[in-house]
Amino acid sequence: MDSKQLYQEVILDHNRKPRNYGKLDAATHSSEGLNPLCGDHIWLHLHVNDGTISGIAFEGQSCAICKASASMMTAAVKGKRVEDAEGLVGEFRSMVTGDLDVGAQPNHLGRLGVFAGVKDLPSRVKCAVLPWHTLHAALTSQQTTSTEGDQDPLAPGT
């Protein structure tokens, strides 16, 4: 899928109608994801009860790839056990950095597999991964995170 198809088939839809967009009252976990260099800036709020993500919402200003990734992520992890959500964080990151071939290797990404094409847009990988880093940060009580600098999934040494 080239990037134009990716935009047309997935990203534009979630960009216009982001799922789970907004605030969440009495969130148990929250985190901020900020990429100062490219300007993507999101906030993620969670309700975690008995190890299950029962509620999730995001808000912020970002490019369409980041927003669509956040939107689809919230839909995918809502109702999931925390450890399963963390599993998806790792798989999503592996997919967009080219370490996981969703067509050939076992995974749990399902519809999130449409983001596989992002691996061919190296400068946009950090946009797609930012919501997932933010989810991991929220689940591990970090107030803020990024996918730039030493947290860039494609940085030398990672």
Binding site: S3, K4, Y7, L37, S62, C63, A64, I65, R124, C127
Partner: peptide
């Protein structure tokens, strides 16, 4: 977002800087 503009212009062979 300019990064989306840059990625989509690139599909048409048009190289611009974004950032």
């Amino acid at each position: 977002h300019p990064h989306d503009v840059g990625t989509l212009l690139d599909e048409d062979g048009v190289a611009v800087r974004t950032g």
